[in-house]
Simulated assay, not measured.
Amino acid sequence: MNEKTFKALLASTATIFTLIFCVMVMPAFFENPDIISAFAAGFVNPFASGYSADVILCWLVLLIWIVYEATQLSVRYGWICLLLGIIPGVAVGFALYLIIRHPQVNRET
C-alpha cells in the first residue's frame, strides 16, 4: 500500500466514524445533555460494558503511545488526537495520530 492510499483510508475511516457519531449520538445527547448518563449508558449490559471498557483502554494505549513518542521521537500535536479520541472517538484520534506522526517519524529516520 502506498502512502497516499494509507492516508486516504485513515482519513476515510475517521470521517465515517465521525458521521456515525453525529447521526447516532448527537441527537440523543441534545435531547438529554447529561454527560454522566451518556457515559453510563455505555455500561448498560455486559456486552456494552465490554465494548466500552475496550474503547477506554484503547484510548489509554493511545495516550501512552503519544506521550512516549512525544518525548522519545519529538512527535508533535498528539494532544489534539487525544482530545479527538474522547469526542468523537478513539477511531478518529487514532487515525489522525497515524496521519500526523507519519511525516514526523519518517523525517527522523
Rank of each mutant, 00 (worst) to 15 (best):
M1K: 11
N2D: 15
E3G: 00
E3P: 00
E3F: 00
K4D: 12
K4G: 07
K4V: 15
T5S: 14
T5V: 15
F6L: 06
F6M: 11
A8T: 02
A8Q: 04
L9F: 02
L9A: 09
L10D: 09
L10F: 02
A11C: 12
S12L: 04
S12G: 15
T13D: 08
T15V: 15
T15Y: 05
T15K: 06
F17H: 08
F17T: 04
F17I: 07
L19K: 03
L19F: 10
I20L: 10
F21S: 09
F21E: 03
C22K: 00
V23R: 03
M24G: 05
M24H: 00
M24Y: 08
V25S: 05
M26L: 15
P27K: 02
P27H: 01
P27W: 01
A28I: 02
F30D: 05
F30E: 14
F30P: 10
F30K: 13
E31T: 05
N32H: 08
D34A: 09
S37K: 04
A38R: 11
A38W: 08
A40I: 07
A40E: 14
G42K: 09
F43A: 12
F43Y: 13
F43L: 12
V44P: 04
N45V: 10
A48T: 14
S49D: 08
S49G: 14
S49L: 13
G50K: 11
Y51K: 10
Y51W: 07
A53K: 10
A53M: 15
D54H: 09
V55I: 12
I56W: 09
L57H: 07
L57G: 03
C58R: 12
W59M: 02
W59N: 02
W59K: 04
W59P: 05
L60I: 15
L60R: 01
L60F: 14
V61F: 10
L62P: 05
L62G: 09
L62K: 04
L63M: 12
W65Y: 13
W65M: 14
V67C: 07
E69G: 09
T71V: 13
T71G: 10
T71M: 12
S74G: 14
V75P: 01
V75Y: 03
G78V: 11
G78N: 11
W79T: 08
C81S: 00
L82Q: 09
L83Q: 02
L83W: 06
L84R: 03
G85D: 06
I86E: 07
I86K: 04
I87S: 03
P88E: 04
V90D: 05
V90G: 01
A91C: 03
V92A: 13
G93N: 00
G93H: 00
F94I: 12
A95S: 07
A95M: 00
A95P: 02
L96V: 12
L96D: 06
L98P: 03
L98G: 15
L98N: 04
I100V: 08
R101Y: 00
R101K: 12
H102T: 08
P103T: 08
P103I: 14
P103W: 07
Q104F: 03
Q104L: 10
Q104P: 07
Q104H: 09
V105W: 02
N106D: 08
E108F: 13
E108M: 15
